[in-house]
Structure formats: C-alpha cells, structure tokens
Design a protein around this nucleic acid. Structure first.
Ligand code: FES
Ligand code: FES
Lengths: 144, 144
DNA sequence: ATAATAATGGATATTTTTGTCTTTTTTTTA
DNA sequence: TAAAAAAAAGACAAAAATATCCATTATTAT
C-alpha cells in the first residue's frame, strides 16, 4: 500500500509527536530504535520531512527532532503520505493507465475509485494527534 | 496499490478473456500490444498465470493464450492479485508491522482495516467476465 | 521429415527502492 | 576557544522490481 519510506515516515512522526506533546526532543537514534527502522535510512526520511516543515530539527547537543505544536495541531496522515509517496494513491489509475479518467476509464475504474476515495478520506481525516493518544495510552504499538 | 506485474496480469487476463469469449486464441504479441506492456516481461507474467491454471497456453502455430470457459466463469480479480502480489494487501499491516494483529495493533489499524476489507471484498466480488462486458461494449479501455 | 510458428526457460541487464558509510556543519557546554 | 553532540549532505552499496535477450521445446502445416 505505502512504500517502506512512507511507513517509516508515518511511524517516525507519530513517535516524535508523542514526545513533542511532552516537550521532549528526540535524537535520530531514539526514533529509529523506537520504530524499529534502519537509522541512516530514517535520517533521510526525517530530512525530507524537515525540509517540508512537517518535522523540526535542531542541531547540536540538546538538539533532535520535534513537531511544533502549531504544526502538530494540523498534521494529518495525508500530509505525510502525499509528501513521501505522492498523489498516485489519490489520483492514479488502479491498472496503471497514464491518467485515471472518467471519460476513458479502465475496466476497474468504477469499483476502484470508491476504494480510493475512501482511503483518501481516511488519510485526510486522521490526525497524527489522534494516533498519538492511543499510542500514549498503550492501546497501539509502533514495533513488532 | 498493485505492482506493475499485477497490473499487467489483470489487463492481460481481461484482454485474453474477451478474446476467449469469442473463441479466439491470442499470441503474446497481441496481448502485449493490446495492453501496452513490455512483451518479454508480459511473457513471464503469463507463464506464471499458466502454471497456476488461470490462463491456458498452446504452443505452435494456431497456439496462443486463452482462458477456458470453466475457469473464466469463476475467475475474479482476487485470484490474479493474490497469485501475483500475495496476501499483503489483504492481511498486511498498513505500517509494515510484522503481522497485523488485533491484540497488538499499530496506530492506524482500526482505520486501515476498514479500507483493507473493502478492497478485499471488491476484489473477491468482481468477476473478470463482468469487466470483459464493459470492455467489449467500448465503455472501458486497456491502454492510454 | 522439414520448415514455420508460438510459448518456455534461463541468463542477463536496467531501474528503482531501500539501506549504509563517511565527512561536514551547526550548536552547546566546559 | 575547544571538545562533544547532533543533524545534514553526499557518495556508495545491496536488494528488489522491472525489463530484455537468446536458445530450447512443442505443435502445426507442408
Ligand atoms: S481509469 Fe483506471 S482507475 Fe480510473
Ligand atoms: S496492525 Fe497495522 S494494520 Fe493492523
């Protein structure tokens, strides 16, 4: 469904967000070990998220990653997925035609567009904060 | 959503099925050009489908690919997707945890499982024959 | 039997995705 | 001001997915 990079990106954001809620910055090491991802690869993904103002980073001792409250209050799954995996999952044809097109639809178009728009709706309506809550209460997990 | 191989596999099956309904066998060349896919790669995918009795092949002049009526009458999208892409789309965790697990769910589990089961339901309920009909009536397309 | 046709099978190549390693830059504390 | 800590950046490596090539096998028609 999502690329590995995107999966790591989502998990990293949820973890960093949880810590940010408690005013803690986290290092790359902490992120990678908390979400069970390869450190250097995770670093690239975090860089990408930082360059696009989804995550904030501070260098030096006491530095680390965080998500500022004003960003966190708006951040949704869709922002992360769109940044990392692009809009294929929203707009792409299920059978890989150049463009999904009502006028020249592929055979699965009508069935596929329903699923696709439900996925879109789900990603756009799910806030990272809502996921943080459940994680914080020990109801969900980022590893295993 | 699906791999390229799976997209080609689905399109190939729909095209071959359409021809089989009219008692025509089709060559690899015809398949590849009709669905706009790389010939040799498509060959591998068709081999895979043949080995698993989803498509039939006959060698020699007059040979080619076909889908026998008894198979076509049962064939659904899910059969093709499951064969080529496996069950990740049905059972896999949206965040890539080892196994999707009600007891140890990831943060997106509850939202994700809804989409996933709708996709599953759609794939399992959609017959290739129903897609052939629309293609045949010029309502849908396999290229562009 | 022979030639022609069409799929098969195996090896190889390319591209994309995923993952690693090393050096540089920035910031903080001593 | 020097040392340590942490991310940034760039080059490189490995693995997986996608794609191509060529020789072989099976079938049909002549
Ligand atoms: S044209 Fe294929 S999904 Fe719309
Ligand atoms: S545990 Fe992640 S989708 Fe079920």
């Amino acid at each position: 469904m999502f690329s590995k990079a995107c999966e790591y990106g989502i998990k990293a954001c949820i973890f960093i967000a949880e810590q940010s809620v408690n005013n803690r910055r986290v290092s790359l090491k902490e992120v990678a070990s908390s979400i069970d991802s390869p450190e250097a690869y995770t670093s690239k993904i975090l860089q990408h998220l930082c360059q696009n103002n989804i995550v904030r980073s501070d260098k030096g001792p006491l530095g680390g990653f965080s998500i500022p409250a004003p960003i966190l209050s708006h951040l949704r799954l869709s922002n992360i997925v769109y940044l990392i995996d692009g809009d294929d999952i929203y707009k792409g044809c299920g059978l890989g035609l150049k463009r999904c097109n009502e006028k020249l639809p592929c055979p699965v178009h009508n069935k596929f567009k329903v699923i696709r728009s439900e996925l879109k709706e789900m990603l756009e309506s799910t806030t990272i904060l809502s996921l943080v809550d459940k994680l914080h209460n020990g109801l969900t997990f980022l590893k295993r």
